[in-house]
Amino acid sequence: MAALTVTFIETDGTERAIDNVDAGPSLMEVARNSGIAGIMGDCGGACSCATCHVYIDESWLERVGAPDDIEYMMLDMVADVQRDNSRLSCQIRMREELDGLRLTVAPLPGY
């Protein structure tokens, strides 16, 4: 299994580089297993809660790809913090092509 790296930038600016990530699991699972602040993943990866919302670094957008309609509808529910590079991290599986990926955790809005 390839040992890949992904870097999460938490909402307070802390950079957390996660090494030895396997291909396969979703980025939400990677984040939860590493205790990344702000990635809750309430619904367990069902694309149903928007608590694993991230912003993909612009240079990675093309490789990561755009959300499908179902994911886009969920992102629209948190339009106050939605951006053009928004994704739900439960819908992105780690793969070799994404080795070195950088993403920023979206703030949990509301209060």
């Binding site: 809750m40 309430d42 619904c43 367990g44 069902a46 694309c47 149903s48 809660c49 928007a50 608590t51 969920m74 629209d76 529910m77 948190v78 339009a79 106050d80 809005p109 509301g110």
Partner: peptide, 24 residues
């Protein structure tokens, strides 16, 4: 509402309603 998805009718955290997509 820009934050309508923050409503908590389904609860939250690890116990958030599992059937939420079917209900919606």
């Amino acid at each position: 509402r820009p934050n309508v998805g923050r409503q908590v009718a389904f609860g939250g955290g690890v116990h958030r309603c599992i059937g939420l997509a079917l209900a919606r």
